[in-house]
Design a binder for these strands. Structure first.
Lengths: 159, 159
DNA sequence: TTGTACTTGATACAAAGTATCATAAGGACA
DNA sequence: TGTCCTTATGATACTTTGTATCAAGTACAA
């Protein structure tokens, strides 16, 4: 049986918001209502959302949300490294490895839309090495791998 | 001095068009005017073009070109594997390794816009392995690495 | 509580991509 | 050569995605 604590376990939302608070404090940036709201929506969606899907969700709570404010907020959260953009699907997803800077890879299932965020040493080393070989000082690394996930292959003929 | 030949050396355009002709014949697809034109423009640009940049170029020769026709043609050429889309810059570029199916990586210089298309075994193997580890049967592989190329780093402090 | 730099809301706009359908153009065949 | 059929094109309208600008509002420090 797990040991009892005085602090009760934080919800995923509370944990993520604390992380955001810390990052803002560290960097002297403000934690505003729309920033909290976007984070909460991305968290509860548990899947990538397009900017306009997000806008629709936000408007259901605050009719003043606009495309411009959504994109601004997403840019802010991406700069903090707690949201990623999936280029191949033009959508935005909460980072699953929010501690420190890192190079991640996304695996996207074309059947069910599931997205897995990986942090694979081998891939990171291989791309870094490729950059060196070709004389590039790399600072951004987009790796989006699309296919069919295990459970979707299981339910139908694998192709 | 280079050896004389009876066949005069084909221009890059001629070679690329022959490649396109062959592919169309193999697959029973038609080689039409707009398809040749898009290929020629991408070739002479020697850099990635957005769909609307391409449209402007095409309109200078045929005023009837439209966005729809440009996208249709690009989709066709991408299906043949002789054009790639760069997701991170929403642009299209001629394939530099047009022989057979392959997984490529792009290195993009954020200073000068230069794009290098690589076909790196190590990166391909690492991503394939990652897919296997996570149970994905991968069929698409987007790798776009952004940084500063060698000559741009040489001309200024590297950062 | 007040000041102020930063952020937001509102509006308008630009860029990127798609749907639909009638017309046109290749190619097979008589 | 002309007919038929298939596929691609041209034309139009539209949707989705992303930005620029600027006045008004607000989080945070002092």
């Amino acid at each position: 049986m797990p040991k009892a604590h005085n602090v009760r376990p934080a919800s995923a939302l509370e944990r993520t918001l604390h992380r955001l608070e810390d990052l803002c404090r560290e960097r002297g940036q403000r934690l505003t209502r729309p920033r909290r709201a976007v984070l909460a929506k991305l968290l509860s969606a548990r899947r990538p959302l397009s900017a306009y899907e997000l806008l629709d969700l936000l408007r259901s709570e605050d009719g003043r949300s606009t495309a411009a404010s959504v994109y601004r907020t997403l840019d802010f959260l991406m700069a903090l490294g707690i949201v990623h953009r999936l280029e191949s699907t033009r959508s935005f997803v909460l980072c699953e490895h929010p501690d420190g800077p890192h190079w991640v890879q996304f695996l996207i299932c074309r059947r069910c839309g599931q997205v897995v965020e990986a942090e694979d040493e081998r891939v990171a080393a291989a791309t870094e090495r490729l950059g060196q070989r070709l004389g590039f000082a790399l600072d951004q690394h987009i790796v989006e791998l699309t296919g069919v996930c295990e459970s979707c292959r299981g339910s139908r003929a694998p192709h």
